[in-house]
């Protein structure tokens, strides 16, 4: 694609867009009103306390989708369960290394 073709495609797009704009103004002509000309909502501070963002539970959907609360319940603080995991992990590592090595 060379320079001339690109320029021609650009010009045709501009013409189509101009056509569409003229057609839309004929279909729905805009009307000025007081509310449209006044200042919109910019320049006011909206703090975290005013916006109703539930920060603590914002990412709870990720944890729920991954069923992570079962993972948290598994870490229940009992030392014997932790040691069982360590020995089970060690057996798994040795099995992996012996069978696939």
């Amino acid at each position: 694609m060379d320079f001339g073709t690109t320029l021609a495609a650009f010009g045709i797009t501009i013409c189509i867009m101009a056509f569409a704009w003229r057609a839309s103004r004929r279909v729905a002509p805009g009307r000025r009103s007081k509310g449209k000309e006044s200042m919109y909502a910019c320049g006011e501070k909206l703090g975290i306390a005013d916006s109703n963002v539930p920060v603590e539970s914002f990412y709870a959907s990720i944890a729920n989708a991954a069923r992570a609360d079962r993972l948290r319940d598994a870490h229940n603080g009992s030392l014997s369960r932790y040691l069982t995991w360590v020995f089970a992990g060690m057996v798994a590592v040795m099995a992996f290394l012996l069978l696939l090595g």
Binding site: V86, V93, L98
Partner: peptide, 26 residues
């Protein structure tokens, strides 16, 4: 066959110290 066994033991021991997952509970 001693080599995979010794490597597995040393790797498990060092994995406990580094915090890989089945060994991370401390």
């Amino acid at each position: 066959t001693f080599m995979p066994i010794s490597m597995g033991l040393i790797l498990s021991g060092l994995a406990i110290k580094s915090g890989f997952v089945p060994f991370h509970t401390w």
